[in-house]
Write a protein that binds this DNA or RNA. Sequence first.
DNA 1: CTGTTAGCGCATTCAA
DNA 2: TTGAATGCGCTAACAG
Lengths: 318, 318
Amino acid sequence: MSTINDVSRLAGVSKATVSRVLSGSRGVKEASRLAVLKAVEELNYRPNVIAQSLLSQTTGCIGVICAQDNINQTTGYLYALEKHLSQHQKHLLLRFANSRSEVISALDELTCGLCDDVLIIGARFPLNNLGYDDVILVDCVEADTPNSIQFDHAFAAETACNYLISQGRRQIALIHPDVSGSAERVLLGYKHALENNFLPFNRNLVFMDATSASVALQVLLNNASTLNFNALLVADEQEAQRVITQLQAFNKSVPGDIMVFSLAGSVHLPGIPTIPAIEYSMDAMAARIVSWLSEKTQDVLGACVLRGDLIIPDMRQR
Amino acid sequence: MSTINDVSRLAGVSKATVSRVLSGSRGVKEASRLAVLKAVEELNYRPNVIAQSLLSQTTGCIGVICAQDNINQTTGYLYALEKHLSQHQKHLLLRFANSRSEVISALDELTCGLCDDVLIIGARFPLNNLGYDDVILVDCVEADTPNSIQFDHAFAAETACNYLISQGRRQIALIHPDVSGSAERVLLGYKHALENNFLPFNRNLVFMDATSASVALQVLLNNASTLNFNALLVADEQEAQRVITQLQAFNKSVPGDIMVFSLAGSVHLPGIPTIPAIEYSMDAMAARIVSWLSEKTQDVLGACVLRGDLIIPDMRQR
DNA sequence: CTGTTAGCGCATTCAA
DNA sequence: TTGAATGCGCTAACAG
């Protein structure tokens, strides 16, 4: 690879002039400008970004640590993020991490000048006192960082219930293991919706302990005759697919007998019937993050909360 | 962030000694070694990798350009690659690209000193004469690069047919649009398996033109009475899900009436019945790539061809 | 064993 | 309008 020295020599000007032409490019005589451009072309010269980084103390690299347990969900994040980042001439440095210690070692390796900023996405384990306070947490639990983007789970649950009720489903079961710490928010929205619709709250329809969703569903099915539930709220699409299979194994039709609703996102695989869900716009999230990274004013991102959209299955598909 | 100067000043030694302690660390008096270590600890100093990169002319960054049209398939690649790369203290710089021109601009931005190497994954458009000859192509078509990893499609098709025949399916239809350029290899394996099993080749069961798989399947179904096909080979899992839905819409049971087989990989979503498939080990692929990147001898990776494993559905699940 | 010096490739002074 | 000099943070060669 040729350097700025080669160009300056070939063009018969100094390094400074070459640099001027390639950046600002003002206050340079046309003749030498052309000479530089010609030399650049001839040598196929391109400035070394590492040298520029050393000088500017910024690399344009954004570290993204994916801590998502559902690996398939990361794709949506990554695609949206990369799209927005590259539009701002930023690069996405990808790491996966499945535990707090893995996150820390990833952070260690990324914050030695390589990355200007780091995001952590989807961690379901505590991330307090990381020792790095300028990290942005996206959809993570127990975020004591000033900069974080959370999803409004209460809003999601409330919307979900209101939709289900509008569809004539008044016995709504809720299975939402409390790994995410967001369970109480979900419950809040759930109760709120019931109240607003003058429906009683039935403790037996709600399963928020850490036991498996499969067991919870079995309990529900065992007591189906007395509970009479006709809708089921679950944490995410993956969970939804699981319970649907289980329901069908018990000869419950979906959504005929029981309407299953996913509280977070979806994997739209062709050939798999869509279920109603709350979906969070990855694009909106990415845009928010990138704009914050670009501005980089002193003020923090704050407890930014993102609300999801209600997605209902296209009836033509069924 | 503190620099080596801060450390040397605090430790009362020269920059060189600090550097010595932190790297090689041999030939340094114990006293000054400890002084350096103490200062490092106190200042929480860590060497700036950018400065090191400028000197060594390597960044440890590997650019990965995902050109996969099926975005969900990239996750497998990325996860395996990142795992192996980080084990070799290398970083994964992620880009998505959906066309030749996007690939080129991504390459432009990545090869200015930022990345030591670049991979392109899953491109289904021609990638000749990119102007970069040290790029590694993975599962790309029309690869005239010396370094590429291809999947053995002939072997996959042959294995698939042999499996289907062993299951009593002797009328095997094949739908494999020729976008990938690998269609002729697939056909080769298909024919080979038929020959070895003394079965006739029926041209009407094979659809390799660029028309939609949906239309091809309709043709098959329209002539079902005469064709009597009881197995269907498709290009990938996505395609498989599509045809399964379509088959079920025509009251064909899967795999009862027709066994669907995916020739490339699979998305194992819980709750979705597994179908037989050829799966390529992402781990093996990543290991191969990383070892090649690390060796970096003069010799090329060569036309490395990877064979997939036959995955049959676990009967307990059905 | 250790300090000084030079230079990786670049942009930005400061003079001319 | 331009060139020479400086320094980003670091390592390697050399000299002590």
